[in-house]
Protein backbone atom coordinates (compact mmCIF):
# COMPACT_ATOMS: atom_id res chain seq x y z
CA UNK A 1 0.00 0.00 0.00
CA UNK A 2 1.38 3.40 -0.94
CA UNK A 3 1.97 5.93 1.85
CA UNK A 4 -0.76 8.36 0.76
CA UNK A 5 -3.28 5.51 0.49
CA UNK A 6 -2.25 4.22 3.92
CA UNK A 7 -2.66 7.71 5.40
CA UNK A 8 -6.09 8.11 3.81
CA UNK A 9 -7.14 4.70 5.05
CA UNK A 10 -5.93 5.59 8.56
CA UNK A 11 -7.97 8.81 8.47
CA UNK A 12 -11.04 6.93 7.23
CA UNK A 13 -10.74 4.47 10.10
CA UNK A 14 -10.31 7.25 12.66
CA UNK A 15 -13.31 9.26 11.47
CA UNK A 16 -15.70 6.34 11.04
CA UNK A 17 -17.89 4.51 13.49
CA UNK A 18 -16.08 2.62 16.21
CA UNK A 19 -17.15 -0.63 14.55
CA UNK A 20 -14.73 0.10 11.72
CA UNK A 21 -11.91 0.42 14.22
CA UNK A 22 -12.93 -2.88 15.79
CA UNK A 23 -13.03 -4.56 12.38
CA UNK A 24 -10.48 -2.75 10.23
CA UNK A 25 -10.32 -3.36 6.49
CA UNK A 26 -8.17 -6.33 5.57
CA UNK A 27 -5.56 -4.44 3.55
CA UNK A 28 -5.22 -1.91 6.35
CA UNK A 29 -5.07 -4.63 8.96
CA UNK A 30 -2.34 -6.50 7.09
CA UNK A 31 -0.22 -3.36 7.03
CA UNK A 32 -0.50 -2.36 10.69
CA UNK A 33 -1.31 -5.56 12.57
CA UNK A 34 2.12 -6.03 14.13
CA UNK A 35 3.32 -6.25 17.74
CA UNK A 36 1.71 -7.71 20.84
CA UNK A 37 -1.10 -5.22 21.37
CA UNK A 38 -4.14 -6.03 19.19
CA UNK A 39 -4.64 -3.60 16.30
CA UNK A 40 -8.18 -2.61 17.33
CA UNK A 41 -6.97 -1.63 20.82
CA UNK A 42 -4.18 0.51 19.34
CA UNK A 43 -6.56 2.15 16.89
CA UNK A 44 -8.98 2.96 19.69
CA UNK A 45 -6.20 4.79 21.55
CA UNK A 46 -5.46 6.90 18.45
CA UNK A 47 -9.15 7.51 17.87
CA UNK A 48 -9.65 8.57 21.46
CA UNK A 49 -6.73 11.02 21.23
CA UNK A 50 -8.12 12.54 18.04
CA UNK A 51 -11.67 12.89 19.37
CA UNK A 52 -10.49 14.36 22.68
CA UNK A 53 -8.06 16.77 21.06
CA UNK A 54 -10.47 18.03 18.41
CA UNK A 55 -13.35 18.47 20.84
CA UNK A 56 -11.00 20.39 23.16
CA UNK A 57 -9.98 22.56 20.20
CA UNK A 58 -13.63 23.36 19.48
CA UNK A 59 -14.16 24.29 23.13
CA UNK A 60 -11.18 26.66 22.88
CA UNK A 61 -12.32 28.15 19.58
CA UNK A 62 -15.93 28.70 20.73
CA UNK A 63 -15.61 30.16 24.25
CA UNK A 64 -18.91 32.08 24.17
CA UNK A 65 -20.82 28.95 23.18
CA UNK A 66 -19.13 27.16 26.07
CA UNK A 67 -20.21 29.87 28.54
CA UNK A 68 -23.79 29.78 27.27
CA UNK A 69 -24.27 26.03 27.04
CA UNK A 70 -21.68 24.53 29.39
CA UNK A 71 -18.64 22.45 28.55
CA UNK A 72 -20.43 19.09 28.48
CA UNK A 73 -23.08 20.28 26.02
CA UNK A 74 -20.43 21.74 23.74
CA UNK A 75 -18.20 18.68 23.86
CA UNK A 76 -21.12 16.41 23.01
CA UNK A 77 -22.00 18.57 20.01
CA UNK A 78 -18.31 18.75 19.07
CA UNK A 79 -17.98 14.97 19.02
CA UNK A 80 -20.91 14.65 16.65
CA UNK A 81 -19.51 17.42 14.45
CA UNK A 82 -15.93 16.30 14.17
CA UNK A 83 -16.61 12.89 12.61
CA UNK A 84 -18.17 14.53 9.55
CA UNK A 85 -15.81 17.48 9.59
CA UNK A 86 -12.21 16.37 10.10
CA UNK A 87 -9.54 19.08 9.96
CA UNK A 88 -8.51 19.99 6.43
CA UNK A 89 -5.29 21.79 7.30
CA UNK A 90 -2.56 21.40 9.92
CA UNK A 91 -3.65 24.45 11.96
CA UNK A 92 -6.04 23.77 14.80
CA UNK A 93 -6.56 27.51 15.39
CA UNK A 94 -8.53 27.41 12.17
CA UNK A 95 -10.54 24.28 12.97
CA UNK A 96 -14.28 24.66 13.27
CA UNK A 97 -15.16 26.94 10.37
CA UNK A 98 -18.48 25.15 9.74
CA UNK A 99 -19.32 24.50 13.40
CA UNK A 100 -21.76 27.48 13.58
CA UNK A 101 -23.71 26.01 10.65
CA UNK A 102 -23.71 22.63 12.38
CA UNK A 103 -25.14 24.23 15.52
CA UNK A 104 -27.90 25.90 13.48
CA UNK A 105 -29.15 22.42 12.60
CA UNK A 106 -28.27 20.68 15.87
CA UNK A 107 -31.56 19.41 17.24
CA UNK A 108 -30.48 19.65 20.88
CA UNK A 109 -29.83 23.38 20.40
CA UNK A 110 -33.09 24.10 18.60
CA UNK A 111 -34.37 25.96 21.69
CA UNK A 112 -31.38 28.35 21.44
CA UNK A 113 -32.03 30.13 18.13
CA UNK A 114 -29.22 32.63 18.75
CA UNK A 115 -26.55 29.98 19.44
CA UNK A 116 -25.40 29.60 15.84
CA UNK A 117 -24.89 33.38 15.53
CA UNK A 118 -22.95 33.45 18.81
CA UNK A 119 -20.77 30.68 17.37
CA UNK A 120 -20.23 32.83 14.26
CA UNK A 121 -19.19 35.68 16.55
CA UNK A 122 -16.80 33.31 18.34
CA UNK A 123 -15.35 32.21 15.03
CA UNK A 124 -14.87 35.74 13.70
CA UNK A 125 -13.27 36.85 16.96
CA UNK A 126 -10.97 33.86 16.67
CA UNK A 127 -10.07 34.94 13.12
CA UNK A 128 -9.41 38.45 14.41
CA UNK A 129 -7.16 37.09 17.15
CA UNK A 130 -4.96 35.03 14.81
CA UNK A 131 -4.91 37.36 11.80
CA UNK A 132 -1.57 38.59 10.58
CA UNK A 133 -0.64 42.04 11.72
CA UNK A 134 -0.52 44.84 9.19
CA UNK A 135 0.06 48.57 9.12
CA UNK A 136 -2.56 51.03 10.29
CA UNK A 137 -3.63 53.81 7.97
CA UNK A 138 -3.01 57.13 9.72
CA UNK A 139 -4.71 60.44 9.12
CA UNK A 140 -1.44 61.88 7.86
CA UNK A 141 -1.30 59.18 5.15
CA UNK A 142 -4.39 60.75 3.58
CA UNK A 143 -2.46 63.98 3.06
CA UNK A 144 -0.26 62.13 0.54
CA UNK A 145 -3.23 61.48 -1.76
CA UNK A 146 -3.91 63.92 -4.58
CA UNK A 147 -7.41 65.44 -4.24
CA UNK A 148 -8.28 64.49 -7.81
CA UNK A 149 -7.82 60.82 -6.85
CA UNK A 150 -10.09 60.92 -3.80
CA UNK A 151 -13.07 59.26 -5.50
CA UNK A 152 -10.95 56.32 -6.63
CA UNK A 153 -9.57 55.54 -3.19
CA UNK A 154 -9.96 51.94 -2.11
CA UNK A 155 -9.83 51.71 1.67
CA UNK A 156 -8.31 48.35 2.61
CA UNK A 157 -9.60 46.94 5.88
CA UNK A 158 -6.99 45.50 8.21
CA UNK A 159 -6.63 41.73 8.05
CA UNK A 160 -7.91 41.45 11.61
CA UNK A 161 -11.16 43.35 10.97
CA UNK A 162 -14.36 41.33 10.79
CA UNK A 163 -18.04 42.24 10.39
CA UNK A 164 -21.07 40.36 11.57
CA UNK A 165 -24.79 41.02 11.61
CA UNK A 166 -27.50 39.06 13.36
CA UNK A 167 -31.22 39.26 14.10
CA UNK A 168 -30.28 38.75 17.78
CA UNK A 169 -28.63 41.18 20.23
CA UNK A 170 -25.19 39.55 20.02
CA UNK A 171 -23.55 42.49 21.78
CA UNK A 172 -25.75 42.05 24.85
CA UNK A 173 -25.24 38.29 24.93
CA UNK A 174 -21.48 38.86 24.54
CA UNK A 175 -21.47 41.29 27.45
CA UNK A 176 -23.42 38.84 29.57
CA UNK A 177 -20.80 36.15 28.83
CA UNK A 178 -18.04 38.52 29.95
CA UNK A 179 -19.51 39.19 33.36
CA UNK A 180 -17.40 37.72 36.12
CA UNK A 181 -20.16 37.60 38.69
CA UNK A 182 -23.44 35.76 38.35
CA UNK A 183 -26.04 38.12 37.05
CA UNK A 184 -29.60 37.29 37.90
CA UNK A 185 -31.05 39.85 35.51
CA UNK A 186 -33.05 38.33 32.68
CA UNK A 187 -31.62 39.23 29.30
CA UNK A 188 -34.17 40.00 26.64
CA UNK A 189 -33.02 38.10 23.55
CA UNK A 190 -36.01 38.82 21.38
CA UNK A 191 -34.88 39.57 17.84
CA UNK A 192 -33.09 42.91 17.59
CA UNK A 193 -31.01 43.42 14.48
CA UNK A 194 -27.39 43.91 15.46
CA UNK A 195 -24.43 45.05 13.39
CA UNK A 196 -20.98 44.52 14.82
CA UNK A 197 -17.43 45.45 13.90
CA UNK A 198 -14.66 43.31 15.36
CA UNK A 199 -11.21 44.85 15.61
CA UNK A 200 -8.04 43.85 17.40
CA UNK A 201 -6.60 46.04 20.11
CA UNK A 202 -3.50 45.02 22.02
CA UNK A 203 -3.89 41.60 20.37
CA UNK A 204 -7.37 41.09 21.81
CA UNK A 205 -10.58 41.22 19.76
CA UNK A 206 -12.92 44.08 20.59
CA UNK A 207 -16.49 44.42 19.42
CA UNK A 208 -18.24 47.66 18.55
CA UNK A 209 -21.85 48.21 17.55
CA UNK A 210 -22.38 49.78 14.17
CA UNK A 211 -25.33 51.57 12.62
CA UNK A 212 -26.89 49.66 9.74
CA UNK A 213 -25.55 52.28 7.33
CA UNK A 214 -22.01 51.99 8.71
CA UNK A 215 -22.15 48.21 8.48
CA UNK A 216 -23.27 48.30 4.86
CA UNK A 217 -20.64 50.90 4.01
CA UNK A 218 -17.98 48.67 5.55
CA UNK A 219 -19.26 45.80 3.39
CA UNK A 220 -18.83 47.96 0.28
CA UNK A 221 -15.30 48.88 1.35
CA UNK A 222 -14.59 45.21 2.05
CA UNK A 223 -15.61 44.49 -1.55
CA UNK A 224 -12.95 47.06 -2.50
CA UNK A 225 -15.41 49.41 -4.14
CA UNK A 226 -13.84 52.79 -4.95
CA UNK A 227 -14.82 55.43 -2.42
CA UNK A 228 -16.94 57.53 -4.81
CA UNK A 229 -19.03 54.55 -5.91
CA UNK A 230 -19.39 53.14 -2.38
CA UNK A 231 -20.45 56.51 -1.01
CA UNK A 232 -22.96 57.12 -3.77
CA UNK A 233 -24.49 53.70 -3.16
CA UNK A 234 -24.74 54.10 0.59
CA UNK A 235 -26.20 57.62 0.43
CA UNK A 236 -28.95 56.39 -1.89
CA UNK A 237 -30.13 54.00 0.82
CA UNK A 238 -29.09 55.97 3.90
CA UNK A 239 -29.23 59.71 3.19
CA UNK A 240 -28.38 60.38 6.84
CA UNK A 241 -25.03 58.57 6.60
CA UNK A 242 -22.30 60.83 7.99
CA UNK A 243 -19.13 60.15 6.04
CA UNK A 244 -17.07 62.78 7.89
CA UNK A 245 -17.70 61.11 11.25
CA UNK A 246 -17.20 57.66 9.75
CA UNK A 247 -13.81 58.51 8.28
CA UNK A 248 -12.53 60.23 11.38
CA UNK A 249 -13.79 57.56 13.80
CA UNK A 250 -12.56 54.53 11.96
CA UNK A 251 -9.18 55.94 11.04
CA UNK A 252 -8.72 56.83 14.71
CA UNK A 253 -9.70 53.25 15.60
CA UNK A 254 -7.05 51.97 13.15
CA UNK A 255 -9.54 49.98 11.11
CA UNK A 256 -7.81 50.44 7.76
CA UNK A 257 -4.43 49.29 6.56
CA UNK A 258 -4.12 51.39 3.42
CA UNK A 259 -5.83 53.82 1.06
CA UNK A 260 -4.98 52.77 -2.49
CA UNK A 261 -5.64 54.95 -5.50
CA UNK A 262 -5.76 54.03 -9.16
Amino acid sequence: MKLNKAQKSFKDHMFSKVSMVENPEEEFSNLFNIGKIPLDARLKIYRNHIVTTLSNVLVMNFPLVEILTGTNFLKTAAKLYLFDNPPTEPCLDRYGNSFPEFLANYKYASHLPYLSDIARLDWKMNETRIAKDDNSLQRSDLAEIAPEAYETIIFKLKKSVRLISSPFPLDKIYSLCGEKEDNEDVLDISPEKTYILITRYNWEPQIRNLKESEYNFFLLLQEEKPLGIALEEILKNYPEFNFVDFLQNYIELETFSAAITK
Partner: peptide
Amino acid sequence: MDLSKLAIGTLIAGAMTATIIGASSAEA
Protein backbone atom coordinates in the same frame (compact mmCIF):
# COMPACT_ATOMS: atom_id res chain seq x y z
CA MET B 1 -31.80 61.01 -3.30
CA ASP B 2 -30.12 62.00 -6.52
CA LEU B 3 -26.52 62.67 -5.78
CA SER B 4 -24.49 64.27 -8.48
CA LYS B 5 -20.87 63.40 -9.03
CA LEU B 6 -20.04 66.92 -7.94
CA ALA B 7 -21.87 66.51 -4.64
CA ILE B 8 -20.08 63.23 -3.89
CA GLY B 9 -16.74 64.78 -4.80
CA THR B 10 -17.37 67.75 -2.55
CA LEU B 11 -18.45 65.51 0.32
CA ILE B 12 -15.34 63.36 0.00
CA ALA B 13 -13.04 66.36 -0.27
CA GLY B 14 -14.60 67.90 2.85
CA ALA B 15 -14.27 64.70 4.85
CA MET B 16 -10.69 64.14 3.75
CA THR B 17 -9.73 67.70 4.62
CA ALA B 18 -11.38 67.52 8.04
CA THR B 19 -9.63 64.22 8.75
CA ILE B 20 -6.23 65.42 7.56
CA ILE B 21 -6.48 68.65 9.56
CA GLY B 22 -7.30 66.56 12.61
CA ALA B 23 -4.04 64.70 12.03
CA SER B 24 -1.75 67.37 13.38
CA SER B 25 -3.21 67.37 16.89
CA ALA B 26 -4.07 63.68 17.02
CA GLU B 27 -0.66 62.48 15.89
CA ALA B 28 1.21 64.96 18.00
